[in-house]
Structures are given as C-alpha cells and as structure tokens.
C-alpha cells in the first residue's frame, strides 16, 4: 500500500508544520513572559512571596511589655503571683487595637466562671499537678451558698494566691494557710486538726495520683515538702515552688568515704556531668532533667 513515498508527497504537511512551530514558539514565549520575576530566586517558588508572608499579616498579640507601658502596677503584681507565666493576652485577647488607641479601644475582660474554668475545670486529661476544680464541689467545700457568686469575689485573677484582695493576708494553698484564714471567729489556735476536718493539709488530698505514683518510686522515703518548699516572699506572701537545685540532691548523693555500702549511690560533682558526655551548653542542667524517672510521673491522670 505505501510503496516508495517521496518528499513531495509530504508537501501538504508543510503548513501544518509551520503552524505547529509557531504554536510551540508562541507557547514558549508566553510561558517565558508569564513567569513571575522573582520565581526561582531562592528555590522553586516566587521569591517575593516571602516578603508578603512577613508583611501581609500584622501582629495582634503585642506582649506583656506593651501592656506594662500603661498597666505597670497590675503587671508587677501579676508577675509575682501564680499566674506569672500566664500571658496577659491569653485572658484579655489580642491587645493591638487597645494599645494603639492608648486604651480608648476596649479590650476583652472575660467574665463569669467560664473564664476561669477554661483552665481550671477538672478534666481527666488535665495534668494532675495542675490546680483544677469542680466548681460546685469547691463552692460547697469553701462554704459558698450562692451559686451566682463569681470566682473573682475571692480570687483576683491577677493575684490568684490571695483570697481577698483587700486584706492580702489569706493565701490559697492549704500548706500556706493558717487555721484563722478560714476560721476567723476562733481565738485559740491549736496545732491539732479536728477529727472531722477534711485532710486538706495532706498532699494526697488534692494530688492523690501523684502521691500514689511517688510511693512506688525509689525516692518514696523523701517527703513532698523536701522539694516542693514553701517560699516566703514577704510578710504576707508565699507560694509553693518546685525546687530542683542539684545541691539538694547532692546532700545524699555526693560520694564520700564515710558512707556505708547501703547508702544512696554517690557521685562526684560536677565531674559526673562530664562523665555523662553532657554538652558544654548544658552546664546549668539539673539532676532531674535526666533522673526524672526516680521522682514521680510528671503527669498523672485524675
């Protein structure tokens, strides 16, 4: 069927070839023209896009320093108390508009129990060490009869450790309480706790799971309050802090020739750190950073 075809027999395709060439050239040109100028500047993307990503959005969360410009007193109090690490805008929302208008524009002032319960509602999934309540239980416990009373009647969110913002004497954590903080009518203060009093001064009352977990660990004989000490700041302020100073561990664990064989394992300090191949950057690493397993689970479900 085909036989010998000659060049002439393909002449009718020349125009087609010309059109194809034009098409390809046109397409190549169009492509060249349409590629954005900065495409490929840094990689296979439009270089100018990076600049847009930096400038398209403006920060709305301005940070505590900006808040402190006007609310210095408030911030100072806040920084001394249990909410010190809670950023202002976590509760108050973004402060950009408020700050730019120098306070003329409103800022969120969260109200109602919900505002506190966002963090402090008791949830199984919340870390056991985090203070959390079932508010009805709590109201019952502290003798609040009227359920419409807000948390802020007793706790100032900026200084939650104070029970009463005017007196500034009562403090929240049971370990810090004196009997009179709750039992104001009583003159005599006995060291004995009445039989029927809830055991609120025992760690396990609130921190049951952690205490239970701790009992099974190597340090079970160490008291909670050995590490979680009451730190007195001034006449009326104090808080529970977590002490993790290596010197404290070394009281028992420093190698010494006078120790008996069944004494806790001893080490040379700070040589121990180098032996473990610690990086020089980790010079301020604490014992518990590596030996957490011996203390207690940091998170235990309720």
């Amino acid at each position: 069927m085909s036989g010998q075809l000659e060049k002439n027999d393909f002449r009718h395709t020349y125009r087609l070839i010309a059109v194809l060439v034009l098409f390809v050239v046109g397409a190549a040109f169009a492509r060249w023209w349409a590629v954005p100028e900065t495409f490929g500047q840094f990689g296979r993307y439009r270089g100018a896009a990076v600049a847009s990503a930096r400038t398209e959005t403006v920060p709305r969360y301005v940070g505590e320093e900006t808040c402190a410009d006007c609310h210095e007193d408030q911030v100072e109090l806040h920084d001394k108390d249990a909410h010190a690490r809670v950023p202002c805008e976590t509760c108050h929302g973004p402060g950009k508009e408020h700050a730019e208008a120098e306070g003329e524009a409103p800022i969120a002032r969260p109200e109602g129990k919900g505002a506190c319960l966002v963090c402090h509602q008791r949830l199984a999934a919340r870390p056991g060490s985090f203070p959390q309540i079932e508010w009805r239980e709590h109201y019952k416990f502290v003798g609040v009869a009227d359920e419409s009373v807000e948390c802020t009647r007793c706790h100032d969110p900026h200084e939650p450790l104070y029970m009463d913002r005017d007196l500034r004497t009562a403090r929240l954590h049971p370990m810090i309480h004196r009997c009179r903080d709750c039992h104001q009518g009583r003159e005599d203060e006995s060291l004995e706790r009445p039989e029927n009093h809830p055991p609120i001064f025992e760690c396990s009352y609130c921190h049951g799971p952690i205490v239970e977990d701790f009992a099974g660990r190597t340090h079970a004989s160490v008291r909670c309050t050995s590490c979680h000490i009451f730190f007195r700041e001034d006449e009326s302020t104090g808080r529970i802090i977590r002490d993790a100073d290596p010197r404290f561990c070394l009281l028992c664990h420093r190698a010494a020739d006078f120790r008996s064989d069944d004494a806790p394992p001893g080490i040379e300090w700070p040589a121990h750190r180098e032996e473990m191949g610690t990086f020089p950057e980790d010079a301020d690493k604490r014992c518990i950073d590596c030996h957490r397993e011996n203390i207690h689970a940091s998170e235990v479900s309720q």
Partner: peptide, 17 residues
C-alpha cells in the same frame, strides 16, 4: 512568619499559659 521574623513568638506560643 510575620511575628517570628520580627523577633516575636508565634501567637500560640505567646498565649500558652
């Protein structure tokens, strides 16, 4: 990105209590 390139922390980090 608009925050971290200005030396700020991401909003989620800056608001984590």
């Amino acid at each position: 990105y608009h925050r971290i390139t200005r030396g700020l922390q991401p909003a989620c980090v800056a608001s984590c209590p």
